[in-house]
Amino acid sequence: MLFDIRTIVGALLGCYGLIVLATGLFYDNDLQEAKTGGININLWAGIGMLVASVVFLAWVRLRPVQVPPTVDTTPDASPTAE
């Protein structure tokens, strides 16, 4: 489960989402909101990233990777056409 790409993507989205969310909560000013039409875009983008992170990590938990059974590669005793 650790090396599943969904785990890595979910963890990265979670980390970036927390950083962007904190930026939106603590470092928001009127100049930045004027650029986005009065919307605190960092706040909403951070929330969106955290939601996507939860979706990815839930996907990993609910649908784990199924490892196929191993194939027997020993040569069999059946005659071959030559």
Rank of each mutant, 00 (worst) to 15 (best):
L2I: 14
P75E: 00
F3G: 05
A34K: 08
T80G: 14
L25P: 00
I41E: 12
L18T: 12
A34N: 15
V65E: 01
V20H: 10
W59H: 05
V54L: 02
K35Y: 14
L12Y: 10
T36Q: 11
V65D: 04
N42V: 02
V20R: 05
V60F: 00
A52R: 01
Q32D: 12
N29C: 11
R63S: 11
L13C: 10
G24N: 08
T23V: 09
D72V: 12
I19A: 15
V54Y: 01
W44H: 14
I39K: 15
I39N: 15
Q32C: 04
P64N: 01
V54E: 05
F3D: 06
L2F: 10
W59D: 11
G37M: 08
Q32V: 09
Q32A: 14
N40I: 01
V67Q: 08
F3T: 08
R6K: 13
N29W: 04
G10Y: 13
Y27T: 02
L50W: 05
T70D: 09
T70H: 00
T80K: 14
M1P: 00
G37I: 10
W59E: 00
K35Q: 14
D30T: 13
A58H: 03
D28K: 11
V60S: 06
M1Q: 06
Q66W: 04
L25T: 11
A45I: 07
G10R: 07
N42H: 15
L12T: 09
S53C: 07
G17F: 05
F3S: 13
V71Q: 11
F3M: 08
R61S: 06
N42K: 02
G48K: 03
A22N: 11
I19P: 02
E33S: 13
A58D: 04
L18W: 07
V9N: 04
V20L: 08
L12D: 03
C15F: 15
I8R: 01
L62C: 05
V54Q: 03
T80W: 08
I5R: 05
I5T: 09
L21E: 08
T70A: 08
T74D: 10
Y27H: 09
G38C: 09
D76A: 10
L2V: 05
R63M: 09
V51H: 09
F56K: 00
G17T: 02
F56R: 02
L13V: 00
R6N: 08
S78H: 14
R63E: 04
E33L: 05
A45C: 10
L12I: 13
Y16D: 06
A77M: 08
Q66G: 07
R63K: 05
G10T: 10
I41L: 15
V71M: 07
T23I: 05
R61K: 13
L2Q: 13
A58T: 10
A22F: 14
Q66H: 06
V9Q: 02
W44D: 04
D72N: 14
Y27K: 12
T70S: 12
P69S: 02
A81K: 11
Y16V: 11
S78W: 14
M1I: 04
L13M: 12
A34W: 07
G37E: 10
M49H: 02
A77H: 13
W44R: 06
L57Y: 01
P68W: 15
T80V: 12
V67D: 03
V65A: 09
